[in-house]
Design a protein around this nucleic acid. Sequence first.
RNA 1: GGCCCCAUCGUCUAGCGGCCUAGGACGUCACCCUCUCAAGGUGAAGAUCGCGGGUUCGAAUCCCGCUGGGGUCACCA
Length: 597
Amino acid sequence: MSQAHKTRHSDAASARPDVAGCPARKWDTPRLHRSKARPARAMVAGRVGGPGPGGRALRGDGPALRGRWWQAVCRHAILARPPVGDQESCNHRRGIMSGSVRVRFAPSPTGYLHIGGVRTALFNWLFARHHGGTFILRIEDTDEKRSVTGAADDLMSSLRWVGITWDEGPDIGGPHGPYVQSERHAAGIYRPFVERLLASGHAYKSFVSEDELSQARAQADAERRPFRYRGPERDWTAEQVAAREATGAPYTVRLKVPLEGRTRFHDLVRGGDGIEIDHTNLYDIVLLKSSGMPVYHLAHLVDDHLMQVTHVLRSDEWVPSTPYHVLLYQAFGWRPPVFAHLPPILRQDGRGKLSKRFDDVAANRFWERGYLPDAMFNYLALQGWSYDDHTEIMTRDEVVARFGIERVQPSPARWNPDKLLDMNGIYIRALAPAALIAAITPFLVHAGLLEDPPTAEQQALLLLVAPLIHERLKELGEAPGLLEFFMREVAPHGSDAPLTYDPQQLIPRKLDAATTAAALAAVGARLATLDTWSVAALEEALRGLCATLDLKPGPLFGMVRVAVTGRTVAPPLFETLAALGRERTLSRVAAAHAALA
RNA sequence: GGCCCCAUCGUCUAGCGGCCUAGGACGUCACCCUCUCAAGGUGAAGAUCGCGGGUUCGAAUCCCGCUGGGGUCACCA
C-alpha cells in the first residue's frame, strides 16, 4: 500500500474546493501509506466486480463465496417483489444492469447541511457512480416558512467540497427540470396530480382548520390515546364538498388512507421480509396545504416518478412515512422505487441524532477547520458501510468500485471526531510538499502571518518551513500556531505581546538560572562564528557545545528551543534554526539570556 | 404512550452455522526510536458477541421472548 495511487476522484477532480471563500488548492497525487496497514488482500482488483448485480463484488473465495452469492441473489429477489408485479420488478433489475440507475439527494434548504446529510448524499452518489447511473440533486423547498435564502447555494458548495457532483440539478439543469420544487410548483407541475387523486377517490378535500386540529390533538393527548386524523369529509358526497367549497372555506387535500389492511414494503438495507404496517396506525396525511403548496409526501413522490428515480436511498427517519408513499404509488398506479433506508449517524454521546446543538457538524465549516475533502469523503464512506475487515484508507475510485448496498449496515453509526481527525492526519501526510503549502497558506493568511498573496520572501520561507510541520499536522488549522514564531516576534498562542520568556520553561530541570544563562551565552558566541548556517553545521556546533559545557543534549537543546521559539514544543531544532536564519536566532538567544539576568 | 427500526471491545467495524481461545481501525496505556512534539515501530489492556429461552452434533451467526437504545407520530422535510 506504499505505492502511489494513480487514479483519484475522476469526475470530482475539477470540482474541488471552489466553495465560496474556500481557497483553490492544488491537489497532487497523495502518497497514502501507513506502514502498519497490511498489503491489503482486498485491494486486488479482480475481487471487485463490474457494474450490475451479476458483477458485484463477490469477495472471499472459498466457502464464503456461496453465502455472499446467495445473499446477493436474495437481495435482488427483494427487488423482484414490489407490490406491482413481475413485469415491473424485472425492470428494476434491468435498470441496475443496464446502468440506468437513477438516484437523488433531495435536501430542504433550511440552513446549513450537516455531516449526516452529506453522508446520505454520498451514499446516493456512490450508488449511482458504482452502477454507472445518474445522480440528481433536487431542492425540496415546499416549506415556505422554513426555507432559508442562500441555504441551497451553501448546501451545494458543501457537496462540491467533498467531491460530490451531480448530473442533474438546480444549477446545471437536466431533462427533468426544474430541480427546485418551488419552481416546479410555480410551473403547475403538481396540481394535475392532485386533481387526479381527487377524481379517482384516493384523496379528498378536508376543511378542518389548524385550530380545530390542534385542539383535537391536545384532547387526544390528554386522554392518552393516539391522534390519527381521518377527516369526516372523506365520506362526503360531491354535493356536500361543492357546497362547503362555495363558502370559500380553505381546505387541504388529504390522502384517503384505507381504514383496514396492511401495507408492506421492502428495504435493501434491512432485507428480510420487509416492513409491514397496519393501516390502523396510519392517518390521512395532508398532500396539499391550504396555500396550494404540495407537502413533501406528494411533491417528492411526483418528482421521483417524473424524474424516473429508480432507488430511494434516504435516511432512516423516513421509514415510518414510507407506507404513505407506497399507498400513494398505488393510488397513482405507479411502480414504486426500491427503498433503502440508511442508518442514522448518532451524536457523539450516542443520545439521539446528530445535531448542531451537541456536535460541531456543519458541513460548510470543515474546510475552515482544516479538513481535507478526501479525508472527509473516506471517513463518511465508512459511516455505515465497510469493505472488509481491515481496509479503511481508500481513494475515491476504490470506494466507488467497491461500494454496494449489501454492505450497508442497518445499525446506527456514531459521530467519531477522533477517527476523522486521524484520517485527516493520514491524508495530510500524504500530500505532496507543494500541495501542503497550498493547503496551509489560506490559514496562515487568515491568521495574519502572511500577506495575501504571500510575498516571494514569504513563499521562500514556507518552502523551508512547511516540511517541518508536515507530519505534525492533523488539522490544517494548526499550521499558524506551529509556524507563528517563524513569522512574528511575538509571544506564542496568538498573543500580540512581544516575545517574552518564562524562566520556568527556559531553565531545564535540575539546572539553575546561572548555568542556563552561561550556556545560552556560549551558544550565542558559538553560533555567531559559525561558518555556514546549515542544518548539519548547526547540529555539529551544538552537539560540540554539549561536551564543552558538560550538558546533555536534552537540556541544552531544550533551552535553545525555548529561547528561539518561545515554547517547549516545536519542530526539530536544527532545521528550525536553519530556517530562522542567523540574525534572528542570535537576537532571540540574546533576549533569552537577558531574561535570565 | 402507539407504531417502526436497531443491538459484536469506550467508538467505527469484520463476522452470513464449524476457519472465532471473536479479526482490524480509532482512542487509551507501556516500551523502542529521539533534541521537545509528532510520525514510525513493538506490545498491552479492552467484547462471557445486551439478557433469557429454543433449533442444531455445533450459534456471535437461525427462531421466539425480554431488555436497552434510536426513529416517528405536523397544512416540516
